[in-house]
Amino acid sequence: MVNEQYTPTEKDEQILEALKGGRDRGDPWGRANPRWLMDETGLSKSNVEFCLRSLRDAGWIHRPSRGLYELVEDPREENPN
C-alpha cells in the first residue's frame, strides 16, 4: 500500500527521477539496482540505500528480488503512463 502522506527528500527525488527516466523516450524504466542508481544520481552508497529503504517503507518502490528495486507508483502523479 502506497503511503500518500510520505514527503520525499531531495535525495529521494533523485532516486525517483532516475527510476522514471526513459519512460518518455520509450526506453526501459522503473527498475534499477543500487549501483546503477549511484552512478545515475551521484549519491553515495549509504545515501542510495537509505533512500531506497525510505521509499520502500512508504510503498513507493518494492524489491522484487535481492539487489533489484522497482517503482510501484508516485502518488503525486495523476497519470504516470
Rank of each mutant, 00 (worst) to 15 (best):
Cys51Ala: 06
Gly67Gln: 13
Leu68Lys: 15
Leu52Gly: 03
Glu70Trp: 12
Pro28Ala: 06
Arg66Ile: 11
Glu17Arg: 15
Ser44Val: 05
Lys20Ser: 03
Ala18Thr: 13
Arg56Cys: 02
Pro80Gln: 06
Trp29Gln: 05
Gly22Arg: 14
Ser65Met: 11
Asp74Asn: 06
Gln5Leu: 07
Tyr6Gly: 01
Arg53Leu: 00
Val72Tyr: 07
Leu43Tyr: 10
Gly59Glu: 12
Thr7Arg: 11
Tyr69Val: 04
Ile15Arg: 01
Lys11Pro: 00
Pro28Phe: 12
Asp74Glu: 08
Arg56Leu: 01
Asn3Val: 08
Gln5Trp: 11
Arg53Met: 01
Ser46Thr: 15
Gly21Ala: 06
Trp60Thr: 04
Gln5Pro: 05
Ala58Glu: 12
Leu68Gln: 15
His62Val: 12
Ile61Met: 04
Gly30Val: 14
Gly22Ser: 07
Thr9Asn: 07
Asp74Gly: 01
Asn33Glu: 05
Leu55Lys: 01
Glu78Val: 14
Lys11Ala: 00
Thr41Arg: 06
Arg35Asp: 08
Pro75Val: 14
Pro64Trp: 11
Glu78Arg: 15
Leu55Met: 06
Arg53Ile: 04
Gly22Tyr: 13
Trp29Ile: 12
Val48Leu: 09
Asp27Ser: 08
Leu19Glu: 04
Asn79Pro: 05
Asp74Arg: 02
Lys45Gln: 11
Cys51Met: 05
Gln5Tyr: 11
Ile15Cys: 04
Leu55His: 03
Glu13Val: 10
Leu71Ser: 02
Gly30Ser: 11
Asn3Ala: 01
Leu68Ile: 15
Pro28Met: 10
Arg31Met: 08
Ala58His: 12
His62Asp: 15
Lys45Val: 09
Val48Pro: 03
Asp24Ile: 11
Lys45Ala: 06
Gly26Ser: 03
Cys51Ser: 07
Gly30Ile: 14
Ala58Pro: 10
Leu16His: 09
Glu13Cys: 00
Lys45Arg: 15
Ser44Tyr: 05
Gln5Lys: 12
Val2Asp: 14
Val72Leu: 09
Ala58Lys: 13
His62Trp: 12
Ala58Gln: 15
Glu49Gly: 03
Asn79Trp: 12
Pro80Trp: 10
Lys11His: 04
Asp57Tyr: 13
Pro28Tyr: 14
Glu78His: 15
Ser44Ile: 08
Gly26Asn: 08
Leu55Cys: 02
Gly21Pro: 02
Arg53Lys: 08
Trp36Ile: 08
Gln5Asn: 11
Asn81Cys: 03
Asp57Cys: 03
Thr41Met: 02
Asp57Val: 13
Arg53Asp: 02
His62Thr: 13
Arg35Trp: 13
Met38Cys: 07
Asn47Arg: 09
Gly30Asn: 12
Gly67Val: 15
Arg63Ala: 00
Ala58Ile: 14
Gly59Ile: 14
Leu19Ile: 10
Tyr6Asn: 03
Arg66Asn: 07
Arg66Leu: 05
Glu77Asp: 10
Leu68Cys: 09
Asp24His: 13
Leu16Val: 13
Gly67Ala: 07
Gln5Cys: 01
Gly42Cys: 04
Trp36Ser: 06
Asp74Ala: 01
Asn79Arg: 15
Pro80Cys: 01
Arg25Thr: 14
Asp57Asn: 10
Val48Cys: 06
Val2Lys: 15
Ser54Glu: 11
Glu13Trp: 11
Gln14Cys: 03
Asn79Gln: 11
